[in-house]
Design a protein around this nucleic acid. Sequence first.
DNA 1: GTTTTTGAACTGACTGGTCAGTGCAAAAAC
DNA 2: GTTTTTGCACTGACCAGTCAGTTCAAAAAC
Lengths: 208, 208
Amino acid sequence: MESSTAPGGRTRREATRQKLYEAAVTLIAEQGFSATTVDEIAERAGVAKGTVYYNFASKSVLFEELLRHGVGLLTASLREAVEDTARNGGSKVDALDAMIRAGLVFMDRYPSFTQLYVAELWRTNRAWQSTLMVVRQQAVAVVEGVLREGVDNGEFSAEIDVQLTAAALVGMVLVAALDWQAFQPERSLDDVHSALSRLLQGRVSGRP
Amino acid sequence: MESSTAPGGRTRREATRQKLYEAAVTLIAEQGFSATTVDEIAERAGVAKGTVYYNFASKSVLFEELLRHGVGLLTASLREAVEDTARNGGSKVDALDAMIRAGLVFMDRYPSFTQLYVAELWRTNRAWQSTLMVVRQQAVAVVEGVLREGVDNGEFSAEIDVQLTAAALVGMVLVAALDWQAFQPERSLDDVHSALSRLLQGRVSGRP
DNA sequence: GTTTTTGAACTGACTGGTCAGTGCAAAAAC
DNA sequence: GTTTTTGCACTGACCAGTCAGTTCAAAAAC
């Protein structure tokens, strides 16, 4: 049994799954999981309904794998940003700043995924609740790690609450990015980034 | 023929609507709008399904009025916080800090509403989209107002981006509060408040 | 020849919304 | 002060439509 590979090295099946992810992510971001029908997903992906069920056990499973896939990309991107600053001898604040930028870039590239993620994260009593917890923790842990290292090396106050501060930072970026997209999409990524940098470094009050 | 008033002076109808709001808010926060059935709402409120439609034109209308109701409470609370600090001769940073606290208190008291609001705010193509925009703006405008006044009186740097900064601040509080509730509910409100204060005032890096 | 996809038909559970009818307390009629 | 009327608030069985998931024979892709 050998899975034939398409030009890109992906199997045919993977290509189909990718199309289904892309179709599902925009539809679910717009309408929510329950309001999105499997027929719609299949139609937008340009495949037959039977194909959806050939590739995924159920609508929920498709969604769960989509979540894992997307957060995996984000986490990898955050980690890369941290490693880059470390390689260049940057401080921990630089690492946080690089992560803010990486987050903004991700949300700029995958706005639908971001919407969908925010919309589902704090729900309770849903089938994919545990999946969501796991992937969330993967991403937030990267931020927490940098904060902790900063505390250890004395760059950050020992009194900061790592967990809460990480959550607040993530929220800051998340909501600013969503507002940017929704209400002033003409702004550049650099604009948004510098506004958030300023806030991070406490340069809101006072001068320089 | 007079509309009978209950002990509190509220009409019977208003009492019923309140019960429906309360039932709807928790169910929709948990499951989302589409996944919540009118039958469920009626059952939890302890009324018949027909009563829902006697009091609201449709499921969507019930939801829209619920949104207006909830954000109205939040906005009032934020305004009050600002006025209190102004009365006591506080600075604009004090006003921001008071709003952070007011936001946390609100989210502590109405966690379900907060969940539901976040989950629906950035969706597109939904019936209540415009309602949501309006109420969001009411709330965010209070924050923007304080920032603008701070810039005018020189307390804040003239270079801050009022709109983006307001959004980021709101996001910071929102996400920190949701994470607090979801992942470490044992923490006190003061704990969370001081972590956010620290971040607001740029006391993360460095010492005191 | 094996894997994957197609597409249409079907099922059975569920859902938003409807509507004829009920209960009841205040008002009107007597 | 008793009887009758009024209309608001509520009820719950019912209906027409929708959707996730199944099935499968045939075709296409590899």
